[in-house]
Every structure is written in structure tokens, then in C-alpha cells.
């Protein structure tokens, strides 16, 4: 086809493409999704030209589809990302990631006095501002904001 563009990052036959990742968080997305330990093809492109964002990152993961929980992690890190599921080289679904209403057992509470930082308790947050990523701890009621988001260690 004449209009077929050359792919900077090769296509995958089956799996997931995460596109439009902000360049600064590409490697964190890889780490949070546990792809640094994934034993199949993972193709990474960063600082690629993007009409919409100037520069972007892209990650293609062969033979892997993600759960809703894993996608909410992506949404917190990379709210502009698009997740595309591929089967037999065809796009079977494509959607912008959605910041969820609730985030459970995924990030740490910013408050050092919060009970979740002292007992082995899964954290729970309500997302109170999806645009600016502001989350309210279900337990201590303190707010954790975008720049203070740290993922809990056992998540990948």
C-alpha cells in the first residue's frame, strides 16, 4: 500500500501496544508492568515523533494482554497513553487509558503516619481529581497528588 508508513518499532502478531507514553515515564511503565522480567519479545521505542505530543514512547509486548488493574497503573503513570490489543496483526481493540475512580493496592500513601505505611494493609484510594491526578486515602483521608505517586513495591 502506498500510504503504509514504515514502522520504527516492528509490528507484533499478537499482544499489546501501549502508545503515546510520555517519554519520561516509558521505563517506569515497563517496570510497573513487570516487563523487565517478561520472557517474550518486548519492543521499546522512545523519543519517537508524535504529531500530537511532539515526542512519545511506545511499547509493544508480544503475546501479552493486560488486566484492568494493570491498565489503571498505566493510567496513573501515563494518562495520555493508548492501549491497543493485537490479534493476528489486526487491531481488535484500541482505547485511551482511563484513570479509574478507585485505586486499590497499587500506590503508597504519601502520609508517613498513615496506618497503611505501618501495617501490612492494601492501600485504597478514591480518585478525586482525574485531570490533575489527586487521590484521597480511604484510611487517613490525606491527599496524594500526581508528583508524589509511588507504586507499592510488590506490584509489577
Amino acid at each position: 500500500m502506498d500510504n503504509k508508513k514504515e514502522l520504527v518499532v516492528p509490528a507484533i502478531p499478537n499482544g499489546t501496544v501501549i502508545d503515546h507514553i510520555p517519554t519520561a515515564v516509558v521505563y517506569r511503565v515497563i517496570s510497573i508492568l513487570g516487563l523487565d522480567r517478561y520472557e517474550d519479545e518486548v519492543l521499546i521505542g522512545n523519543y519517537l515523533t508524535s504529531k500530537k505530543y511532539g515526542r512519545k514512547g511506545i511499547v509493544k509486548v508480544k503475546n501479552k494482554y493486560f488486566t484492568a488493574e494493570q491498565l489503571s497503573a498505566i493510567a496513573l503513570l501515563a494518562p495520555t497513553a493508548t492501549v491497543i490489543a493485537i490479534k493476528d496483526y489486526e487491531v481488535v481493540s484500541k482505547a485511551a487509558v482511563q484513570v479509574p475512580d478507585h485505586v486499590d493496592d497499587l500506590i503508597r500513601c504519601v502520609n508517613p503516619m498513615c496506618i497503611t505505611n505501618h501495617e501490612k494493609i492494601p492501600t485504597r484510594f478514591d480518585v478525586v481529581d482525574k485531570d490533575n491526578l489527586k487521590l484521597r486515602c480511604h484510611y487517613c483521608e490525606k491527599y496524594t497528588e500526581k508528583d508524589a505517586i509511588h507504586f507499592v513495591e510488590h506490584k509489577n
Binding site: M113, I115, C137, C140, K142
Partner: peptide
């Protein structure tokens, strides 16, 4: 309890009602 959010957590664990008499600087 001085840990904030401890009473909410206790109420989720307890099989009887919990009244918070102060959880740190929270409530």
C-alpha cells in the same frame, strides 16, 4: 491510636462497631 486511618482499618477488621476516639491528626 496515633496512626492516621487506624480506626477506619479497625472498623473493617472488627466484628463489632468501632468508635474513633482520635486517629492521630486525622479525625
Amino acid at each position: 491510636n496515633p496512626k492516621e486511618g487506624s480506626s477506619r482499618y479497625a472498623s473493617e477488621v472488627a466484628s463489632v462497631p468501632v468508635i474513633n476516639a482520635g486517629d492521630g491528626a486525622n479525625q
